[in-house]
């Protein structure tokens, strides 16, 4: 029988080194939440608001460009603070990778990671076939609805803002939607919400289409085909071109905009194949293999 996923990495590198990015990610997720909660719970108003819009230390506005885009499509011209805040977020996530938002900030990630963990633990069999491109259809649908209804419709049900706002301002019956997402990922299809349906993730993947910060299979020649990276990756299709594409002239940089920069592949690799790097690491041809990677990811 095969050993547990990542056990080889734990043996070689030690438990801490084999979980460092996971720990850093959880710490970041909870730190972001703690910054928002320090005000209402302890009276230290560092950050006011929620992920849709916030004001840090009374000067730095941050706004979710996806919500703002829906507002614009709905026919409203926002005031300056919202526009500045959205611009700051767009630039920041362009630099660090669009879906870095998903892995490092979004509170639903903790829920779906928990569902994924439990799904593996219980050995839930089978998985509904949901195309990974469904999220783009939903993204288009939410923008079309904003246009038709003149209202930010998606915010009526968006689990991301529902959970984050709920933790800070009170969730009401919103927990039902969060439980629904958990059960969807647990029983209906693995990684269904973040990996196939969520339009917020789809939006941020578009933001990070050309992001410089990438995960690079720098030592891919050392790969021993243990496949642990595929097993832990929330978007397993992004790994193969960079890892196994040497023969086809594909560079070692994971260029797919679906990669969430979560760093779990770095953690679980006992051979240190992966590392954070820049997209320009595909020396000579920075976009080598981009088209192939994009195509590979759009296949369900």
């Amino acid at each position: 029988m095969k050993q547990g996923i990542g056990s080889e990495a734990i043996r070689v590198k030690g438990w801490f080194a084999a979980h460092q990015w996971l720990l850093a990610r959880r710490a970041t997720q909870f730190a972001v939440l703690a910054l928002f909660l320090a005000g209402p719970w302890l009276g230290y108003w560092i950050v006011k608001g929620n992920l849709n819009y916030s004001l840090t230390l009374g000067v730095l506005p941050l706004a979710d460009p996806y919500v703002l885009a829906q507002s614009l499509v709905a026919g409203h011209t926002p005031e300056r603070n919202a526009l500045v805040g959205a611009a700051v977020i767009l630039i920041a996530y362009f630099l660090v990778g669009g879906r870095t938002y998903c892995a490092w900030v979004c509170p639903v990630n903790v829920v779906t990671d928990a569902a994924h963990w439990l799904r593996a633990r219980l050995g839930v069999p089978g998985s509904a076939r949901i195309s990974r491109s469904t999220r783009y259809w939903i993204l288009a649908m939410t923008l079309a609805l904003a246009l038709i209804t003149g209202s930010i419709s998606w915010e009526l049900v968006n689990p991301v803002s529902m959970l984050h706002r709920g933790i800070i301002f009170g969730i009401g019956a919103g927990w039902i939607i969060i439980v629904a997402v958990f059960l969807l990922d647990l029983f209906v299809a693995g990684r269904a919400w973040c990996g196939r349906l969520c339009p917020v993730g789809a939006f941020y993947s578009a933001v990070g289409r050309f992001s410089p910060l990438r995960i690079v299979a720098v030592r891919r020649e050392q790969c021993n085909d243990c496949a642990d990276c595929y097993a832990v990756c929330p978007e397993p299709l992004v790994v193969k071109p960079a890892l196994k594409g040497a023969a086809d002239g594909i560079g070692p940089v994971i260029l797919s905009p679906h990669c969430t920069n979560c760093g779990r592949c770095i953690d679980v690799c006992s051979r240190d194949v992966f590392a954070f790097g820049a997209r320009f690491s595909n020396r000579g041809n920075p976009l080598a293999g981009a088209a192939e990677q994009a195509a590979a990811v759009n296949v369900s």
Binding site: H76, I152, F169
Partner: peptide, 16 residues
């Protein structure tokens, strides 16, 4: 109807 297209649901007014 216009309010629902403009409000970002951020709660800044609630806080202030």
């Amino acid at each position: 109807p216009e309010f629902l297209g403009a409000c970002l649901r951020c709660g800044m007014c609630v806080r202030d």
